[in-house]
Structures are given as structure tokens and as C-alpha cells.
Amino acid sequence: MSGFENLLSVVRALRGENGCPWDKAQTPLSLRRYMIEECFETIDAITQGEPSHVKEELGDLFFNVLLDACIYEENGDFTVDECLGSIAEKLVRRHPHVFPRSEGASEANDDLGRQWDDIKAKVEGRGDECALASVPDGFPPLLKAQKMLSKAAKRGFEWEKIEDVRAKVAEEMREVDDAAKSGDGSAIEEEIGDLLLSVVNWARWLGVDAVSALDRANRKFSGRFGYVESSMRAQKIAMDKSSLGEMMRLWREAKKEGR
């Protein structure tokens, strides 16, 4: 029995007549939070670069996916096999440069991004949908911004050159300053949002994944601040405004040492 078949049999047993009360009580709606948690835990393991941890987290993610699929199978909506078959068919259809004889495949194109979109529009009949309709409402805001900007750009809604993108960031910064002077909290929030969106677009133009970039910055900040905290604790110095100078010195020390 393969690993997949074994896991599938375990999931079905958990949902069976003599299965686990918790697993039997779950629904696709109740499982949403666990799917999100497992996705983030998997991403975290990949970022840490520990294969054994990645293996564990991917396993947890596979379990959640199969549990969801099995529930839909029980409800008569679709089978696990149909679910897997549909994605296999779609991947073959959208990769004519790999599977040139696939049914319904378009002619291979050197521009893989354009080829993917052409197949969606001409073969799958999804070309008339709103460009942003496929961006899930449940996406974290930063990821959602990145996806929306990318999809809008594919429809031609795009700056002509990166200097224009950079100028837009500068413009939004000035508008944040103006809103801050007004003291209007709602206006400040709106302008900060516009600034963040323009920075995400700038990152896209530079070929940088904004989500990964912010995650990297968060980890860097956490490491350096942890060094400051532990150093201050070792020196028995209280962390407050009066010791800001020492905290900044330690921060620069952590930065210099590449922490």
C-alpha cells in the first residue's frame, strides 16, 4: 500500500462508524481555520529550511486536504479520485509545452504566462470573468494586494516604467504626511493603505515577492530585538525610554553581526 493510500484509509476510518468523534463532527466550514493554520505552519517550516520539519507539516497539510475531500465524497458532491483527476487534467491542459498531445491543449507558446492565460480563456472559457474575481476574499491583505495588482497588470492596467511606480510611492508618502497633519484618523488609515499598496506594486516591478520580503523583515526584526532584550537583561538594565541609547547601540551591534 502506498503512503497516499494508507493515509486515505486512515482518514476514512477516522470518519467511519467507529471512528473519532472529533473527526466525524467536522465539516468543510469547521476545517477552514485548521487548513489556514497548517498552510502557515508548512510555510514556516520551509522558511526555516529543516526538511524533517517540512515533512511533518506537509503531512499535516495532506491530512487536512484529504479530510476535506472525504467529507465532500461522503456528501455525494465529488469523490477524492475525481478531485485528483480534475487537477491532473488541468495541469496537462495548461502545459502543452510539456504535454503537446493533451486533449484541448492550445499550441505551445514561449511566453508561459500568456500561454496559461490563453488556455484559461480560449479552452476553459474563463476569459470574460472580472480580472479580480478569482482573488479570494479570505486572502491575507498583503497577498491579496499582490495578486490584484498582478492580475490588473495582465489586463493592461499598468505603469509604463518603474520610475512612475517609484514616483507613485513618493506621492503616497506625501499624502500620508498631509493626512497626519490633519489629525483625521480615518484619512490617515486610508492614505497608509494607499502607500502600502503602492509599495507592494513597487516590489512587484522589482521582481520581489512582497509577502516573502515582509516575512524576512519580520524575522530579522525579531532576531535583532531578541538580542537587544537578552543583552539588556544580562546587563540588568531596564528597557524603557531612558535606556533607548543603549538599546540602539545593541541593535546596531546585532545588525553588524548579522543577527
Score class of each variant (00 low, 15 high):
91 L>W: 13
80 V>P: 01
61 L>V: 11
98 V>C: 10
97 H>S: 15
94 R>W: 05
78 F>S: 02
88 A>K: 12
78 F>E: 01
98 V>Y: 08
81 D>A: 11
85 G>M: 00
75 N>M: 15
95 H>Q: 11
51 P>M: 11
99 F>C: 10
75 N>A: 15
78 F>M: 03
65 V>I: 13
81 D>R: 07
52 S>Y: 03
75 N>H: 15
98 V>P: 08
54 V>Y: 01
65 V>S: 05
65 V>C: 15
58 L>H: 02
96 P>R: 05
73 E>L: 06
99 F>T: 08
71 I>Y: 03
69 A>W: 04
54 V>P: 04
59 G>W: 00
87 I>G: 08
56 E>Q: 14
72 Y>T: 07
57 E>R: 02
88 A>I: 15
98 V>I: 15
72 Y>E: 10
68 D>R: 11
97 H>C: 14
60 D>V: 07
65 V>L: 13
92 V>S: 01
91 L>K: 07
56 E>Y: 14
50 E>T: 00
91 L>Q: 12
58 L>E: 03
98 V>Q: 11
99 F>N: 04
61 L>K: 07
86 S>I: 06
92 V>A: 11
96 P>T: 04
92 V>Q: 05
67 L>C: 07
62 F>C: 11
96 P>H: 07
86 S>A: 10
75 N>Q: 12
69 A>T: 01
55 K>I: 05
102 S>A: 15
82 E>W: 03
83 C>I: 03
78 F>P: 01
73 E>H: 08
57 E>P: 00
50 E>I: 01
87 I>T: 10
69 A>Y: 02
61 L>M: 15
88 A>H: 11
100 P>T: 00
58 L>K: 00
75 N>W: 14
84 L>A: 06
63 F>W: 12
84 L>E: 08
94 R>S: 12
51 P>V: 03
84 L>T: 07
72 Y>G: 07
51 P>D: 04
89 E>R: 07
53 H>L: 12
81 D>P: 04
62 F>W: 10
84 L>S: 06
88 A>N: 14
74 E>P: 00
63 F>I: 12
63 F>A: 14
90 K>R: 15
85 G>Y: 02
85 G>N: 08
69 A>Q: 07
83 C>N: 05
84 L>Y: 06
98 V>W: 09
90 K>S: 13
52 S>L: 09
88 A>E: 10
80 V>A: 10
54 V>W: 01
71 I>R: 02
55 K>F: 00
80 V>W: 08
75 N>F: 08
99 F>L: 09
100 P>D: 10
94 R>K: 15
102 S>D: 06
50 E>L: 05
55 K>P: 04
52 S>C: 02
56 E>L: 15
95 H>Y: 12
75 N>C: 13
92 V>L: 06
91 L>V: 13
101 R>S: 12
86 S>C: 09
52 S>H: 01
60 D>L: 08
64 N>P: 03
102 S>F: 04
101 R>H: 13
98 V>A: 11
56 E>N: 13
62 F>E: 05
69 A>R: 00
101 R>L: 14
90 K>M: 13
60 D>E: 14
66 L>D: 02
